[in-house]
Computed example of a mutant assay.
Amino acid sequence: MTRPADSLIIFIARLALAILFLWGGAMKLLSYAGFVGYLHNKGVPYAAYAAPLAAAIELIGGLALVLGVRTRAVAFLLAVYAVVTAVLGHDFWNMTQASLQQDAVVHFWKNIAIAGGFLLLTVTGAGRASVDALRAPRSSGLLG
């Protein structure tokens, strides 16, 4: 059971993480051809299939975070996604131009930090301000 203040902080964390993914997913759809081209340039296999999958993960995952739906599972999926995108999208070890490499290093570690936030949500759950909390069985009686 979480205290009301804890639930508020968890809700704010869910919103902060969700905004990033909702915005990212929307931008991927709005510049879809460019995103597919980016994936091709990065050597992502099956870029034509990976692009809609990435946009869907970000949009559906972001919405699930806002609402607090299946938060533990969604957060774990998004943690894995953040690590995969760090490795595929910010491969600083393959870059030779110093300024590009420095930028990629920052983005790589930001993705890893975001994954850490998702892993915390995997452990804490959504808190009281969520669909998950509404669906949880309520204890009643003297022993509950």
Rank of each mutant, 00 (worst) to 15 (best):
G25Q: 03
A54I: 02
V123Y: 00
Y49K: 05
P45D: 13
L8H: 00
S130M: 00
D103Y: 11
V131R: 00
A75K: 07
E58Q: 00
L29Y: 11
G144S: 14
K42T: 12
A98P: 08
P137T: 10
G116S: 02
R70D: 03
K28P: 04
G24Q: 04
I114N: 01
T85E: 03
R138W: 06
L22W: 03
G25K: 02
A50W: 10
A113Y: 10
R135A: 15
L39H: 11
G34F: 10
Y32V: 12
A26Y: 09
G125S: 05
R72P: 09
G141V: 03
A104H: 14
I57A: 14
V36I: 15
K110M: 06
V69L: 15
G62D: 00
M27W: 05
A129Q: 00
R128K: 11
L22S: 05
A133Y: 09
V123W: 02
Y81P: 09
G117D: 00
G43W: 10
G43C: 12
D132W: 01
V80N: 09
G62A: 02
M1I: 10
A48N: 14
L17I: 12
G25L: 03
H90W: 05
L15Q: 07
R72D: 13
L119R: 00
R14I: 00
F108G: 08
S130N: 01
A56G: 05
A26N: 06
I9F: 06
A5C: 08
R72M: 11
A13W: 11
G68P: 11
Y46K: 12
N111V: 05
G144T: 10
A79I: 07
A75L: 12
A75I: 15
A16D: 08
G24I: 14
L88A: 05
L134C: 02
N41K: 14
N111Q: 02
A133M: 03
G141C: 08
A82K: 02
L77I: 14
H90I: 09
P137Y: 02
V83H: 08
V66L: 01
V83I: 15
E58I: 04
S140C: 06
G141S: 08
Y32Q: 11
I19K: 08
A73W: 06
V106M: 10
Y81W: 13
V87W: 12
L53C: 05
S7Y: 03
T96V: 10
